[in-house]
Design a protein around this nucleic acid. Structure first.
Length: 601
DNA sequence: ATGCATCGCGCG
DNA sequence: AAAGCGCGCGATGCAT
């Protein structure tokens, strides 16, 4: 049974979805369901007002129901957390839109215009219903609201019918799973440790500011802090060229080399440097607070993930919470744990993008190294240094190999390679001369000549699609009409593809230009994402695992399963993740992972 | 007050 | 001619 529905709920200037997270909004004391529009299968849409909504919801057999909404994490959250009913399957037309039209607005209004450009009846009502801030609706307002709600439900249904044929079942299952992570939370939070962490952060930052004796405002502002360094300390504040605007801006970031150097040169100002750091690291405090606020009374926490946030299909964060970029050894991670009797399992696909790149580039030698379980970072470093490099004896040289493998495969140049090494993002900061950096880049490109060839191949094939009759199948991909169709039925979109000033150009939110290295990265990322989501579904659907996937972080899958016999569970996970797809049977995959009471690796 | 662009920084 | 790529959030500073 298909249940298309749309809740209309109280909102005012402060209590609204634009001001609050979904969690805070639905649990707000003023939250109230004004009514709900419900359509069962292709029957008529009915409006149920405030007094009828609960009965209408309770009369549906949710164990048999597939719910369809526009932005289902919201309506689904009301169903599961407010009405305590759980649909069998979640469909979200906003998510479908993001999948089919990456980078374009997924608002109901915009979806309608895009899907039905010539049908003026398929429009979201835009006359203003002034229900804002009216807690108890008068009959006329309620009737008007009900009318618009019915229109929205009908529109959602029409969008569903329009888009469903273009959506592969696997992606519908991923949308269902994404909604489930949010609407049926399984992870729990340790509030005490979060509160302790937050309060520690606040105390530490207050102490640092007091010790320095400078106003917080000055410390936190780049411009004001630069001025302070100049006039009060009598030093020259470091500057740099903005990578986006080209303007000269203060280089006072935590990782700005000139600034860290200045800190080393003037240790007598240590309290000031410490205070600057403390002020700038308030994110820990606010993040802890976000988690505390998001926690439900029963201890669970919803995982907000945005389906198809990136045009490559990768997920993103949302609801002011980004669980995909939590610092690795942060108390934030440790505060997320499994319910009693269960464990958190974390597994990731080792070097998935490097493997995918090697597979696409037909780099047989590299593929063989992966098959043999070789340390590819050390192997490349061996070529770079001209002597045997291994993980234990030459960690520094290996980092050079790692930086090379991760960046040079997508066209990174010598200057950028040099500065990346100098910043020391992946290991100890290293000094390379321009010539040395050039040497490494050349070594990489000649060692993996297939990669360099791949850049130009992909650029040429994509550029060829400017010609509408061009249609080529290659490596499970199809190049046609500004799109690179992926083997799972989705596609990379390069809208309005053209040459502008000699640059391959397309429209996303802004006008973008692209080139071989960038296209290669897009394809590699999109294909790697399919490997991960395919195994996510296998894991979720393997009844013997009794697992609930609760989070994914690009190459990593996080799930909760029973605590008994965890090694057997882990073994099955790894097996699921190492299964190559039908379109790349010869790609060597590897996965590793572990389990614990909490989400800590 | 609120929105937008920009930067910094965390993750992959 | 030359270019690692992909995200979201917090904070600042400026525009409205």
């Amino acid at each position: 049974m298909l249940v298309t529905l749309d809740f209309e709920t109280y909102f005012d200037t402060k209590v609204s979805l634009s001001k609050l997270t979904t969690m805070d909004y639905v649990r707000h004391e003023k939250f109230k369901v004004w009514g709900v529009g419900i359509k069962i299968d292709d029957g008529p849409t009915e409006w149920f007002g405030e007094d009828e909504a609960e009965v209408a919801i309770s009369e549906i057999d949710w164990r048999q129901a597939t719910v369809i909404c526009h932005n289902t994490p919201f309506d689904g959250y009301i169903l599961t957390r407010y009405y305590r009913v759980t649909p069998a399957y979640y469909i979200d037309t906003a998510a479908m839109s993001r999948g089919l039209f990456p980078g374009q607005s997924a608002r109901l209004k915009d979806c309608a215009i895009r899907c039905f450009p010539d049908d003026e009846t398929m429009r979201k009502g835009d006359e203003l219903i002034d229900a804002k801030g009216i807690y108890d609706l008068d009959p006329e307002t309620e009737q008007a609201l009900g009318g618009y709600c019915i229109q929205d439900v009908d529109l959602t249904w029409a969008l569903y019918q329009q888009m469903i044929d273009q959506m592969p079942q696997s992606e519908m299952d991923i949308i269902d799973l994404t909604c489930r992570m949010f609407c049926e939370p399984k992870l729990t939070v340790d509030l005490d440790s979060l509160i302790a962490f937050r309060d520690d952060q606040i105390a530490a930052s207050e102490k640092a500011i007091n010790d320095a004796g400078i106003d917080r405002k000055i410390l936190s502002s780049n411009q004001q802090f630069a001025e302070y360094i100049k006039t009060d300390l009598g030093l020259v504040p470091p500057t740099k060229r903005s990578p986006t605007t080209g303007k000269n801006i203060p280089a006072l970031g935590k990782n700005d080399k000139a600034f860290t150097q200045m800190q080393r040169m003037y240790p007598e100002h240590e309290p000031i440097w410490a205070a600057r750091k403390a002020v700038k690291s308030r994110i820990n405090e606010t993040r802890a607070q976000r988690f505390i606020d998001a926690a439900h009374d029963d201890g669970t926490i919803s995982v907000p993930l945005r389906y198809y946030a990136a045009h490559t299909g990768r997920f993103g964060g949302t609801e002011k919470i980004n669980m995909q970029n939590m610092p690795r050894n942060s108390p934030l991670r440790k505060a997320l744990y499994a319910p009693k009797g269960q464990l958190v399992f974390v597994a990731d696909l080792s070097n998935i993008e490097a493997r995918m790149l090697a597979w696409l580039a037909d780099e047989d030698d590299l593929l063989e190294q992966f098959r043999n379980g070789d340390d590819i970072y050390s192997n490349l470093a061996t070529k770079i240094y001209g002597r045997p490099i291994n993980k234990t004896d030459d960690p520094t040289e290996r980092f050079v190999g790692k930086t090379a493998v991760l960046g040079l495969g997508y066209g990174m140049g010598a200057a950028k390679f040099q500065s990346t090494l100098e910043a020391g993002a992946m290991g100890p900061p290293m000094k390379f001369t321009t010539e040395e950096a050039f040497d490494v880049v050349n070594t990489y490109r000649s060692t993996y000549s297939g990669v360099q060839l791949l850049w130009s191949k992909l650029e040429l094939k994509l550029a060829n699609t400017i010609n509408p009759s061009y249609d080529e199948h290659w490596h499970g991909l199809r190049f046609h009409r500004g799109k690179i169709h992926l083997p799972n039925g989705m596609a990379l979109h390069y809208n309005n593809l053209r040459y502008e000033g000699g640059q391959l150009t397309y429209d996303s939110r802004a006008t973008e230009s692209t080139w071989g290295g960038r296209i290669t990265e897009n394809v590699v990322q999109a294909l790697s994402r399919i490997i991960v989501t395919d195994s996510m579904l296998r894991i979720q659907q393997d009844a013997s695992l009794d697992a609930q996937v609760v989070l994914t972080v690009h190459d990593e899958i996080v799930l909760i399963s029973q605590a008994n016999n965890p090694d057997a569970t882990m073994g099955k996970l790894i097996a699921h993740m190492c299964q190559p797809p039908s379109w790349a049977k010869d790609i060597p995959l590897d996965a590793e992972g572990g389990y614990d009471f909490s989400y800590s690796k």
